[in-house]
Design a binder for these strands. Sequence first.
DNA 1: TCGATTTGACCGAT
DNA 2: ATCGGTCAAATCGA
Length: 297
Amino acid sequence: MECTWPASRKLQEKVKEELLRGHELANQLRLVVGNGDGGLLAKGFVKKIGCSFTSCLSLLTGNHESKGEYIQVSTGRSTFALPTIVESSSSWDALKTIKSRETFTDSGSSSKKRKTSHSWSRDAPDFIDDGHAWRKYGQKQILNARHPRSYFRCSHKYEQGCKATKQVQKVEDDPSLFRTTYFGNHTCNHSLLKSPELILDNVIGGSPIEESNSMFTITFENNNLPYELEHPFFSSNTSIEREIIKSNHVVSSHSSSLSFDYLVQRDQPMLFESSEPASSRLPAMMEYFAQEILPML
DNA sequence: TCGATTTGACCGAT
DNA sequence: ATCGGTCAAATCGA
């Protein structure tokens, strides 16, 4: 699917991000339903939802020929490896398995799979600062791999019993990229999370800002991937983002797996109250933006 | 001195 | 028997 028109391309990116999020939500829902004694009917619906997302993503990314366990989705900033969800029960069970190294290349090769929990992987040009504190506990040379694999666990494993782990390995085909594979959700206290990055975007839904000079968008990059299910409307986040949500300047909002966008009116400066300790951890850039840039808009 | 990293040993899954 | 994941003693460095 080739789109040369920039607006269509941007729209396509948005659709891809939204599908990515939907895919992950369906996956999470499947785990929730699977944990309890959820009815077969519910499980069936969850599976169908997953299949739809897999199909859409396959079509959008041109992976529809691939019969692999994973589907590669590249957005503007990163690349994700998502488990494919198909109707057959054997493939459904395969969702629970991890295939970290051969994900994008050789789907047919046999590899030993030991981890059986849910995982996400992401390629990025550097070690990802996902806001969580990690402690390295091992490094191994992997068979037939040029680069060693590093093992990390959550720093709060012992104090809070957090079971989250991640593995980081250079991508075979592109050593400038690091593939980070996450296992398990953080159950530790998230209060130490760093504030998300704030971006002022001069483009609204693919349209130049001149077409809407009374509005602009504020984007909070979600640095906490792959834990993007912590949508700001449902859980605590940084105080600055809460202020934006609360303010009557917000016209609409959009969330994707990568970011939260707020369409904001520019009629008057927005005030960011520092009523919570979290605000003291705001990056200097956000403070500067709030105090110096916003009033000028 | 103490927390983080390194690295060889160990163990369980395949 | 092999391999990947984890442990833990040694080492590093702030």
